[in-house]
């Protein structure tokens, strides 16, 4: 008994520390540290709460360059049981389809899984694609934006939230859910969990020697989409009339008269 959970996550540049060069409008990426995608931390918390309630284990899985091992270690510190890092040059440059393919194939190698959990979207590209794509490869039911879950006779009962609706579903397992962002507050990493991980060494690293996927179906070659070019976003021309060093009264009066002139306040 218990739930075998796979937690899919991404290791992303921490946009909270990224600055934009005010002259060129480009991102200053140098020295930007990576973190576990914050929305995946919400998902990790969701998974840990399920495990506490029903038992079982959680495997954190990522397809990424080797430095993502730090992300797995962070999740182990939160209390995740083990990890799987899928890393190979042949997986590089993948779009979401090629990424989800490798993840799905790796999930198939697991002895048993009941539930795949991931965050609503990523901080860096926020596509929210991977969940549905993995579900499509594995042909399993899936629900996005889940806030609560419980087990009922081997099925999962979930609540999810849309723009103006709350829905509850009964889902046949195995299934995939994504967790509504901000619906859970991730617990801190503990020293005890970190030590446990150091002793158990529970992380597997799989390359394409292990997965043996056709490399025409992975990475850049397995990606239907390519970024053809990037360009600076054109700035919307704005008036940039700024008032500075005046009293709040004067400033407010100035603004109200400007807005009046334009007929915006009528």
């Amino acid at each position: 008994m218990g739930l075998n959970i796979v937690l899919l996550f991404k290791y992303v540049p921490n946009t909270n520390t990224v600055n934009v060069d005010p002259n060129t409008g480009t991102l200053v990426r140098e020295g930007v540290p990576s973190v576990v995608n914050p929305h995946d931390l919400d998902a990790a918390e969701f998974a840990l709460e399920l495990r506490e309630k029903y038992g079982g284990k959680i495997t954190a899985m990522i397809m990424a360059p080797p430095n993502a091992m730090k992300g797995i270690e962070f999740l182990l510190g939160m209390g995740v049981d083990d990890g799987m890092l899928l890393t190979d040059r042949a997986y590089g440059g993948a779009d979401t389809l090629a990424t989800s393919y490798v993840l799905a194939e790796a999930i198939k190698t697991l002895e048993h899984y009941d539930l795949i959990i991931t965050g609503q979207e990523t901080l860096d590209s926020s596509t929210a694609h991977i969940g549905a794509q993995v579900a499509s490869w594995l042909k399993i039911p899936y629900v996005y934006y889940v806030t609560e879950a419980s087990l009922d006779n081997g099925s999962l009962i979930v609540k999810r939230q849309l723009e103006s609706l709350i829905e509850s579903y009964k889902i046949r397992l195995p299934a995939l859910v994504t967790v509504l962002m901000h619906s859970h507050y991730p617990r801190p990493v503990t020293l005890e969990n970190k030590l446990k991980a150091v002793i158990k060494k529970p992380v597997k690293v799989l390359t394409n020697n292990d997965l043996k996927l056709n490399i025409l179906c992975t990475g850049l070659r397995g990606s239907p989409t390519v970024v053809a070019k990037t360009e600076f976003i054109s700035k919307i021309p704005r008036k940039k009339e700024i008032i500075q060093g005046k009293s709040p009264q004067e400033s407010a009066a100035w603004l109200v008269s400007k807005l009046n002139e334009e007929g915006i306040l009528n």
Binding site: V20, P22, K235, I236, R238, K239, K240, E241, I242, I243, Q244, G245, K246, P248, Q249, S251, A252, A253, W254, L255, V256, K258, L259
Partner: peptide, 27 residues
């Protein structure tokens, strides 16, 4: 005054919102 938002604004007030907003409300 160096906040990037002023680059994307038509009208900008450099000041403490806690003082400016009540004045706007009043007016």
């Amino acid at each position: 005054p160096n906040a990037p938002i002023f680059e994307s604004a038509d009208y900008g007030i450099v000041g403490d919102y806690k003082q400016v907003v009540p004045e706007l409300i009043k007016l």
